[in-house]
Each structure stands twice: as structure tokens, then as C-alpha cells.
Write a protein that binds this DNA or RNA. Sequence first.
DNA 1: GCAAAAGTGTTAGTGATACACCCATGA
DNA 2: TCATGGGTGTATCACTAACACTTTTGC
Lengths: 224, 224
Amino acid sequence: MTACAGTPRHADATVAVAVDVVPLALYEGRLHAGLVRVERGDERSRFAFPGGRVRENESLDAAAARWLAGHLPDSGVHVEQLYTFGEPGRDPASRVVSVAYLALLSRAIAAPGVEWLPCATLPRLAYDHRTIARVALDRLRAKLAYTNLAWALLDRTFTLADLQQVYETVLGRALDRRNFRKRVLALGLLSPLGATRHGAHRPAQLFRFTTRRPITVGVLSERE
Amino acid sequence: MTACAGTPRHADATVAVAVDVVPLALYEGRLHAGLVRVERGDERSRFAFPGGRVRENESLDAAAARWLAGHLPDSGVHVEQLYTFGEPGRDPASRVVSVAYLALLSRAIAAPGVEWLPCATLPRLAYDHRTIARVALDRLRAKLAYTNLAWALLDRTFTLADLQQVYETVLGRALDRRNFRKRVLALGLLSPLGATRHGAHRPAQLFRFTTRRPITVGVLSERE
DNA sequence: GCAAAAGTGTTAGTGATACACCCATGA
DNA sequence: TCATGGGTGTATCACTAACACTTTTGC
């Protein structure tokens, strides 16, 4: 590929391509990341995000889906490409260019080999995965503000309080309940189910997203 | 890299890594892209963006800078990673994963082998570079609205009319001059030079960006 | 003095923020 | 009946959008 305008070929083929998937989900009111232990090499036993080599006849998206599914049972995930990391020294063992993916799950599913750790207090991670985690969180925060992506972090039906908690948890600040409801209902992306959820107190109305495809709309103002 | 959780290694090493750089600049009131001709292979003589293999000891950013500099003389460019394209069939000859970069130039510099073509009417491009072009334009449009990135498409000093034209050209619609000036001056990112530029009519005040680093601020409202 | 671009202010409307009270339920 | 979270309405403020005229210069 690419227009090689008469440039010699250098040592090329030794660059490997991998994907790394950052699974995020809410758990006990906090944002958690799904991590696995590195099994080999200098970084053995440290936490890292699931991932690995891209196969020769496989798209990047497919590789991300494969590596995610290899660790976490599929459950209506939203997966999107995040950023590509390729510093020569990021893996001490060999040159690996890694395409990072963000995966949003509606639940922190327990799965063998996967540990869900709170994003706010991640331990030391293998390679440059700390950086990847930061980029993933920044992306998530940014996209919540101008897309309907919150659906990916919620069950199919939810209350407005649930939805508000997604925002408050991810953004790390409290939002005014009345204004939040007004804004989010005014967007017209939610359909009331008519049903209610019964808990300890007054039952709450249940909603679902009219569409669960990514949409760009100003969900939050810049200030509040 | 990555936590290879006991997965066998498939045919790995045959995926090559390249960068492709999308150089954009304003020229005669329109946004233009800098393209080169493919020299070899099935796509020979079609237009494509400058790019090529990443060297083994080179970061992705460095590779992008190298391939850009190989075609266009450096001139205070802004370069940022755009997206990574890796469909198996995107280069019919071999499997290439390409990390695309966006490069913003203050001028459409003439250089041997480079043709500047208006983005609105690009011809058929090699590989999937049409897609890359679209992603680049979407990114530029989006970032103009909430960053000070316009500086990259302007000379160091410019008039408010110049700045407004950047926005109007990239966004493809007219903006109200008075409101534009108010908003952009209220942001406090511009410093007046005191000097003026003399043209055919009343001279215009010259400004520069106080900082030419990327900053996130609401430059435009969502509506206007 | 005329054409053309630079420069400026006001008003109306819309959306954001802040805020306080009633409601429905389970215990 | 009370504690708890669910649900609603309003006044203020800030920002946006629409809009017309004066100024300065080159020709």
C-alpha cells in the first residue's frame, strides 16, 4: 500500500500488529476495567488488557472482537477503535504496534481469568497499558457528553436515576436531577416502557433507548 | 505485548505496518489535499496520500513526519493521528495495516510530485484512500468547532476575515461576521499585533494566536 | 466620491442553571 | 407514619442569533 515514491525498503517485516481491548463497565457505582494477567515475558503476572496478534485474514475490528470474546462472554457490547500505540520500546521483547479498542459493557461480567478493577485506582499495568487506560477513559468521558453512548453501559431497560448515575460516575461529578431529566427527555432518545421498577421506595419509571446505534447529540451542556 | 492468554500463534508476521498522511491546506478559498501518484502495482498512477512502511526503530509519529517531509518541505505543520485502517483486502497486493495521520499546513506548498487537489472533488484514489480522506475531513470539521486548531491552517499572523474564512471553507457555510468576531475575541486566544494589513480597501487589523498548542474550547456554538 | 471591505451594538429569544416542594411506596 | 428516593415547575441568567449602519482606505 501507499505511494512509495522511490524510497528504499528498510527492515520492514519485523513490526507486529496486535489489538488491545479496554473493557469498561460500571460496578458498584464505580467504573471498572477488565484486566487479565500477562502469562509470559518480563511483564509476567502484571495486569494488562486482553489482546494479541491480528491474524492475516482478519480485520482489526474482528481481531478486537475475537480477543474480547476470548475473555468475556458476548453481551451486547459496544466496541470502537481508540488509538494506535507504536512506540518502539513499548514492548521490551519485540516491536509491536497495537491498535487499542474501547469496549463498553452493560455489566462487569465475571469470567475466568478476568479481574475487574476500579479505574480510579488501577495498579501498575504491563507495557504502556496505563496510557491506554487513560486514553480510553478520556474518550469515554468525551463521548458521553455528545453522544447517546450511555446505552452501552446500561441494561436494555433502566430508570432515569440509572442513566444519571452513568453520567455521574463517568464524569465524576454530581448533576442536578431535575435539569438532567429535562435535558435527557427533551432529546427524545428515550421511550418510556410504561412499566416501573419496584425497589425500596417509590417505584421508578422504566425507559429504553429508542435507538441503540451511536448518535451524535448534545447530551450535556459544557458547563454543568 | 498483550496478555496472550494461552492462545496459539497463527500466521502472524506477514502483516505490514505503514502510515499514510493526509496533508490539508487552504488554497484559493477551498480546502485542498496533497496527493502523490502511486508508482507501482495495480494501483499505479492513481492518486494516493503520501506514506509508506514504518521502520523498525521508529515511532508511528516519526514515520508520519518522515513520509510527510519526504514530499513536502516542513513548514510548521500540525500532525495528529487519525485512525487505523486494516481491512484485509485494502491493499490487493499484501496485508497492510495503515495508521492514517492528519497534517494541517498553513499553505498548499508546491513540491515536486505533489498535486494539491480540491477536497470537494477528489478523483478516484488508490486503495481505500477515499475513505481515509473522508475521515480526515470529518475530523477536521469536528475539531475546528471545539479547539483552536485553526491556527494550523493560517499563517502566523492573520486578519479576522482570514480566520473566518478558514471556518467558512472547512465547514462549508457562511458565518455572521459580527457574531464570529465577538465569539472568537471573547475566547481570549488571539493577540492583536497593532499592525494592519493593507489591501484594496480599508486595512485590517492583524492578530496571532496567543498559543499555537492545541487547546479545547467551544469556538463555535452547535447551531450557528 | 465611490466601491469595497473593516469594524461596531442592540435586541429578542432560547436554553442553562439554580432551586423547593409534593408524591408514592416499603418498612 | 416515616424515611427514602421518584417526580415536577419556575425565575433568573447567559449566551446565541439576527440584524444595519458607520468607517477607512484605494482607486
